[in-house]
Design a protein around this nucleic acid. Structure first.
Lengths: 179, 179
DNA sequence: TAAAAAGAGTACAGATTTGTACACTTCCAG
DNA sequence: CTGGAAGTGTACAAATCTGTACTCTTTTTA
């Protein structure tokens, strides 16, 4: 059992459910059943822990979604698969919105590293859509941006508990936004 | 000079720039140049102040956007005008993302009133799009939801500093999402 | 004008938060 | 088996945050 990963598991879950600033180090210590000494030895300070959580989450999303789009051939199927993946995510009990959006809103004014990680994550997400559309397409960049915009909106609507049950409407909308 | 509105001005600006939990009552007192007695006499507690700020902001948005769509006739022009209004907002120096999204992410886990106000605001926003499309249209509800989703995504992309300079792409995407 | 309401300013109680210190234990590798 | 790295548990310093208390002053209103 890797204690580092266990701490990150607990911290990620707490940050995801309640936010970064509102969750104190003592609470992570209690729920992870480790000592504060260990927390500060491993991650330096609370900000270091936040960064480690975000970085690991980004890598996980990267692996999952890269696999999702590589399992299909044409742009239409790749986008459709990304949509399915998002709906599975929205339906999971852990879903509480996008942690990178929350990091951006909580840390952007102080220009701290979590905000930087969030911006990098979204830049990678745009590149995923560009690759899904095929980079040599005309205006692939802009079409990818429109699709990403729509997906970001879906995440928000899901966080507000307002996602429509019928996935078909979203799939149809995505198709309209394709080149 | 209305002291109540002045306090709300200052609090709204601070909450907008930095978030709700991170801004303390003492800071609002200092920047508004009022006493803590006045703050607590007027708003009860910090949560009451947050609620008052959100409520007033919702009413202001309601007035502005109702006026925007009533100034045009066909759905296409109404949506286009809403888009223009959003781009003006994104370009303003006060823009720091959607305060109701932030309220939802900071208060939803505690099921407090700010989250309720945020949900109500977004429900009203959906109704705005339904009215803009014309309520008797086929699947107006669902088309409005797709448009709202896209607009929520634009707000997020703007918060990340990633909105494209050329408004034409977004306008074109909106048209594709119309019935 | 006199009473009542509202505000200023300050102090403070009580809780919470981050981060450190220190003594003691566990565990593993040379 | 032994020394060092890592972990536990506790205590605590220092800052911060919410909310109240209390006195004094200003403003409004009857």
């Amino acid at each position: 059992m890797d204690i580092q990963q266990h701490i990150l598991d607990v911290a990620e879950d707490l940050f995801n459910q309640h936010g970064f600033n509102v969750v104190g180090v003592d609470r992570i210590r209690d729920e992870a059943h480790v000592s504060k000494t260990t927390l500060y030895r491993r991650f330096g300070d609370k900000l270091g822990l936040v960064e480690a959580v975000l970085h690991r989450r980004h890598v996980r999303f990267e692996q999952m979604l890269d696999e999702v789009i590589s399992a299909h051939d044409c742009p239409k199927d790749k986008i459709s698969a990304i949509l399915d993946w998002h709906f599975d995510w929205f339906g999971s009990p852990q879903f509480k919105g996008c942690m990178f959006m929350h990091a951006q809103s909580e840390f952007k004014c102080t220009k701290q590293k979590p905000s930087e990680i969030a911006v990098d994550h979204k830049a990678w997400l745009l590149s995923l859509f560009i690759r899904a559309l095929g980079e040599n397409q005309v205006n692939a960049q802009e079409h990818a941006e429109m699709l990403l915009t729509f997906f970001e909106g879906m995440i928000i609507r899901a966080e507000f508990g307002c996602i429509l049950h019928d996935k078909a409407f979203y799939k149809s909308a995505c198709l309209k936004l394709l080149p």
